[in-house]
Computed example of a mutant assay.
Amino acid sequence: MVSAALLSLVAVGCVLAMEALHRAEWPSRGPYTAVITWQALGLAWGVSTIGALLAYGLSTYELGAAAGLLALVTDVVSGELVLTELSRGLEGVSHIAAVVLAIALTLVLFYGLVSSFVHVVRVRRRHHDLLELVASEHPDVPGARVVDHPAAAAYCLPGVLRSQVVISAGALAVLDHRELAAVLAHEHAHLRQRHDLVLLPFSSLKRAFPRVPLIRTYYESVALLIEMCADDQARRTSSSRELAMALLRFGAAGPAPVPAGAMAALEASAQAGVVRRVNRLLRPDTELPYHAGAFIMGGSAFLLASVTCLWHIPV
């Protein structure tokens, strides 16, 4: 029961840490570190929550969550599990309920991840096919395709074989050449670093628990940090002012809704984050110190290692 209690504490601690991270100011100074921290906390929460349920439900084996799970499979095959636990009365029923809940949570999380991936792949495939019909090359926009649409839009469609950056005619009308180059650099950063895969676990959580506002809030926090990561990459080839002006011009023109499965320089639903991004570009804070980033990354690695060890505590 000790492992169940410790894993429960870790799960609660992860939720508190995510709330603190959501409210903290330092992530904008080190968005890459913050995104990895979000991933570590999310993974640790899922593994520790499932582990706590299993450790309690399988406590009669006195083997821990991992070894107890193997013993559970053996007893299920032999048909001894249900009879043994039910003979223990209410306590045995609670153990069975905990194991069932752990399996159900695992299936829900797995379903969210797989269904999100399949949905995104299908939507992107259809959109790629549509772009072949309506988009065209443009001499002023190398490495991108142009759609004849009056709304200001710039987005990318990630893919293994067919990654594309798309710019609308409305965007070309409001951006000058340097601002356009900054936007293209931003979108290519999304493709090069596969930010869509970084965001996938959080979008799958949002899909698995659509009625939980807190998950949507945390998803938006991670999405904003990913945009900041792309902004930082764009600043290596373009000035911060050019990218900030491009974002402001998109906002003034009224950005078009982003197609499903795409990642945009500016989404119509993320206007609040645009102000933070523009302020960050025009009045940048000092970057997160190296030693602070190393400490946070080390803490994230230690958290995941601790959760793994707690799965094997045989008490």
Rank of each mutant, 00 (worst) to 15 (best):
A272L: 08
A272H: 05
A272D: 09
A272G: 07
A272F: 03
A272S: 04
G273F: 03
G273T: 00
G273W: 02
V274I: 12
V275S: 09
V275W: 06
R276H: 12
R276I: 05
R277H: 00
V278T: 11
V278I: 12
V278H: 04
N279S: 06
N279T: 05
N279L: 06
N279M: 04
N279Q: 06
N279E: 07
N279A: 06
R280T: 09
R280P: 00
R280E: 10
R280K: 07
R280A: 14
R280F: 02
L281Q: 08
L281P: 09
L281T: 06
L282S: 01
L282E: 00
L282P: 00
R283F: 15
R283T: 09
R283M: 13
R283W: 07
R283C: 12
R283H: 08
P284E: 08
P284F: 06
P284T: 13
D285H: 02
D285W: 01
D285G: 03
D285N: 01
T286G: 15
E287Q: 12
E287C: 12
E287W: 12
E287Y: 08
E287G: 14
L288D: 02
P289Y: 06
Y290K: 07
Y290A: 04
H291Q: 10
A292N: 11
G293Q: 15
G293D: 14
G293H: 10
G293P: 13
A294W: 13
A294V: 15
F295T: 09
F295I: 04
F295G: 07
I296F: 07
I296N: 11
I296Q: 10
M297H: 08
M297A: 15
M297I: 12
M297F: 13
M297W: 10
M297P: 01
G298P: 04
G299S: 13
G299N: 11
G299C: 12
S300M: 06
S300Q: 10
S300K: 03
A301Y: 05
A301W: 03
A301H: 05
A301T: 02
F302C: 13
F302T: 06
F302S: 15
F302H: 11
F302E: 08
L303N: 07
L303P: 09
L303V: 05
L303F: 07
L303W: 01
L304A: 04
L304Q: 05
L304T: 03
L304C: 11
L304W: 03
A305G: 13
A305W: 02
A305C: 09
A305T: 07
V307P: 02
C309D: 03
C309P: 02
C309R: 08
C309F: 13
C309I: 10
L310E: 01
L310P: 03
L310Q: 00
L310C: 00
L310R: 00
